[in-house]
Design a protein around this nucleic acid. Structure first.
Lengths: 138, 138
DNA sequence: AATGGCCTCATACTAAAGTACCAAAAGCAT
DNA sequence: ATGCTTTTGGTACTTTAGTATGAGGCCATT
């Protein structure tokens, strides 16, 4: 909200500056009216594009971002989360073990803890729940 | 591409029209220069916003849609796809069997065929590949 | 120094998942 | 009607996945 007010304030100031500038340059006869209008058009074209990008950015990013607070809330540890990420890549416990340089037993332990914390019965269900909770990026 | 050319053509024409309009109205003295500039600013502000929205829309929609052509290309049947959808919901073979009113054996057959067609070793990998191929919605 | 949380690993299970192979019924297009 | 694909289902088997339990090491906090 504060940002919105700031942006619009800047916009209004810019508009007023352009008014004065246009008057001055037109009076002095240095620059033709066409160029002034062109500059204004281009300027506001990019301002419009920029603001639209800003407002839509959150909608675009939101479903693709990880809610780290929720991970903490669920009591999921760093290592457990790493395992979860590997599961989402479709890897087996053995493959995850090799990537994380631990034994398959360790991976199984992490997976079991994950299933409990995510209240899931299977790893596929864990993935679905994790995505619903925005814990995993797509 | 064709759209882009069309849009920019319209933009240039609009700009030229505004040039002439500004000249005429300024000469006749009906409207002050400030109002002309304001109109141009507002107009191009919205044009910029509109174009930005157009270009980002595809990026937003794209990752959330199903590519049915690709499903056909892979030779995945209706029933097999139904099973794939249930897998993505985190269900077990037994649960899928109950939902689709078939035996667990049938589900296993479908899953095996799916894994071959998606070139996956596990159901979790099948999910990852399916999402990469945009066969599954998020 | 003791406590608690995390990571590690092992053993011994049980439960799913997945493979291979076969086969019959159903739906569909020529 | 005759192929063709899909769907269905079974048996027998192997491989992963997941549970339960215990235990040692590490590290930060108290």
């Amino acid at each position: 909200m504060k940002k919105t007010i700031f942006v619009f304030s800047v916009l209004i100031v810019a508009l007023l500056v352009l008014f004065q500038l246009s008057k001055y340059t037109y009076m002095s006869g240095d620059i033709s009216i066409e160029i002034i209008i062109a500059i204004i058009a281009i300027t506001f074209f990019f301002i419009g594009a920029y603001l639209k990008a800003k407002t839509t950015k959150k909608e675009v990013d939101n479903p693709n971002q990880v809610d780290y607070k929720k991970i903490e809330e669920l009591g999921i540890s760093k290592r457990e989360y790493e395992v979860l990420v590997q599961i989402s890549k479709g890897l087996s416990n053995q493959e995850i073990a090799e990537i994380l340089f631990v034994s398959e037993s360790t991976v199984k332990t992490h997976v079991s803890n994950l299933l409990i914390k995510l209240n899931a019965k299977r790893r596929t269900q864990a993935l679905q729940i994790a995505k619903e909770l925005q814990i995993l990026a797509y």
